[in-house]
């Protein structure tokens, strides 16, 4: 049962108001307490500064969150994105640093960066389609279905890296993590491009409408003739692809594949970014612009904590609090209780 949201949250533009206000607050705090926080300078034709850093670090979270937003909107969730990041990262690193095994398997890319990226992304897409098949065709609950890959995915990644942290040097591939395009870090460019692609994919076709319809009322969508299985398969596949791109950026950035820690707990950041942006965790409407703001807010929080010299692990505690806060704000039961109390105090 959906209740009308309290006015505070629904006034227009409904989904962006709260996260934008929160983002502004955090930025204001930074401006007041961290000297030079807003300082951006040009060095060798590249932009540097805390803000650029936030964009750069926030890119992988945003990438994950884009796919996650669509998945959440269908009423599902993908817990495996972190593991999928590890898989694609390990795949790329393996192809660069230890191509012998792949060559034996008939895969000889001659160290070509585009080919390595393409092959790794196919792996990410395949992982997403695997999740999608379980959810759409085997009717497994999304949490459970994606849990499988969350468990086994890191094993697969370790298998690819033979359990070691593979380091590599490959200027072409490293560009993905540390290159610059038009003064901006390349990850930012990729994230912006994927944001546009996601928007085009969901709003330029009927996919967005179908996703929202399936998540909001599955039965009504079925009766209207929406092919829910196909929609879910596509969306999980896309989520896997997004996670794959994020994994490649992460790997290229540190010039190494760490199967154990790549993307660890990133699934929560992705879910949080989407939820902060107003996408319902129980399915229905999704807001890509909200997800963008949500991802930026999360990264700004993290960067703030890091810059303030507070122990970085405090971000974990802060995020725990944000999760609960966002959940409570979305909970109809909490809203009705809080609303009642508010009204009682007002009278």
């Amino acid at each position: 049962m959906k209740r009308p949201a309290p006015r505070l949250i629904t006034s227009s533009p409904p989904h962006l108001l709260m996260p934008l206000a929160a983002l502004a607050l955090v930025l204001l705090y930074d401006a007041l307490t961290i000297p030079g926080f807003f300082h951006v300078e040009m060095r060798d034709g590249h932009l540097f500064g805390s803000l650029v850093d936030i964009l750069n670090r926030g890119a992988p979270v945003l990438l994950l969150a884009l796919g996650m937003t669509l998945v959440l909107s269908t009423g599902g969730v993908d817990l495996s994105v972190g593991a999928v990041m590890a898989i694609t990262g390990a795949m790329a690193a393996g192809l660069i640093a230890r191509p012998e095994g792949f060559v034996l398997a008939g895969l000889d890319l001659h160290g070509s960066a585009p080919a390595i990226v393409a092959v790794s992304l196919v792996a990410g897409l395949a992982a997403g389609l695997f999740n999608g098949a379980l959810v759409a065709f085997a009717d497994v609950q999304p949490i459970v279905a994606t849990l499988i890959l969350m468990v086994a995915g890191r094993g697969v990644a370790q298998l690819l890296t033979a359990g070691q942290i593979i380091t590599f040097e490959h200027p072409g591939f490293q560009f993905l993590g540390s290159g610059f395009v038009a003064g901006l870090p390349f990850p930012v460019t990729v994230a912006v491009a994927m944001f546009l692609v996601t928007a085009a994919l969901s709003r330029g076709t009927a996919l967005g409408l179908f996703v929202e319809a399936v998540g909001d009322n599955p039965t009504a969508s079925r009766f209207a003739g929406v092919n829910a299985r196909m929609v879910k398969l596509l969306v999980y596949g896309f989520c896997g692809l997004c996670a794959g791109i994020a994994g490649l950026i992460g790997t290229a950035d540190i010039k190494a594949a760490d199967a154990n820690n790549a993307g660890l707990y990133m699934e929560l950041d992705a879910i949080l970014a989407a939820a902060i942006g107003g996408t319902s965790l129980s399915g229905g409407r999704f807001y890509l612009s909200g997800t963008l703001v949500g991802a930026l807010l999360l990264q700004t929080l993290t960067t703030t904590i890091l810059t303030k010299g507070v122990p970085p692990v405090l971000t974990l505690v802060v995020k725990a609090a944000v999760v609960v806060a966002v959940c409570l704000l979305q909970s109809p039961k909490f809203r009705s209780v809080a609303g009642r109390r508010f009204r009682r105090e007002a009278t």
């Binding site: 499988i148 468990v151 086994a152 890191r154 094993g155 697969v156 298998l159 359990g163």
Partner: peptide, 8 residues
């Protein structure tokens, strides 16, 4: 890592 794959 085979443990994880087997578990999955």
């Amino acid at each position: 890592w085979w443990t994880k794959i087997a578990a999955g």
